[in-house]
Design a protein around this nucleic acid. Structure first.
Lengths: 102, 102
DNA sequence: GCACTCTGCAACCATATGGTTGCACATGAG
DNA sequence: CTCATGTGCAACCATATGGTTGCAGAGTGC
């Protein structure tokens, strides 16, 4: 379990460790599901770049998608954020405990 | 402020988004300051690889170093972890609030 | 049906990343 | 002094990463 969980946490941190992706998470953090096109409006990168980032975020479990007609809406998955938060919380209290808490 | 802080948070997440680095943080999380050589003992990578990772961690503010005779000891900086934790904590409650909390 | 919009895929590119080896330079131990 | 240890720097390498452009396909609106 610990190995699997640890990898998941790494993926989450990796996903958050990019400015563009963190900005996407921020926009989705408002609570409204958005399409890749909607997110790329106002962003300084292409829609395809945003799409790639959304894939990374989804692979990390931070985001889920839902087909809504012809567009695909992405929403934030708060659970994973919480997991990462708890993980960080535990590190200062000892590594093993950090993993056990999950 | 928000821009600067946001970048710092990205750096922290980026630093944690690598398995080797997360393992290093884990070992330092025990509370004992260790040298790069000590950390690389038992790790599956070279001392120089660990040294590079320690530099990344230090640039992110997650680690501090102290010259101790001929060796250099690295210790975990819990404050940055806490910052990242608080940041994550705030995202689900809204992006702006997340930045303000720092 | 037809045009428009949003999506998905593929090719491609420059640079960053993680890792290695090799060697020179301090510093502590004998 | 001499030798072993720990560090730092540089070159180098394969692959991952972040980004682009171009185009084909699926739904929607009229």
């Amino acid at each position: 379990m610990s190995k699997t969980t640890e990898r998941a946490v790494v993926d989450v941190f990796f996903a958050l460790g990019d400015g563009t992706r963190l900005a996407v998470v921020g926009r989705l953090g408002a609570g409204v599901a958005l399409s890749a096109t909607a997110i790329s409006d106002g962003a300084h990168v292409t829609r395809q770049a945003i799409a790639k980032h959304l894939r990374v975020l989804e692979d990390a479990g931070l985001v889920t998608h839902e087909k809504r007609g012809r567009e695909v809406l992405y929403a934030l998955e708060a659970r994973r954020l919480e997991e990462a938060r708890v993980f960080l919380d535990g590190i200062s209290a000892g590594w093993d405990r950090a993993i056990d808490r999950l």
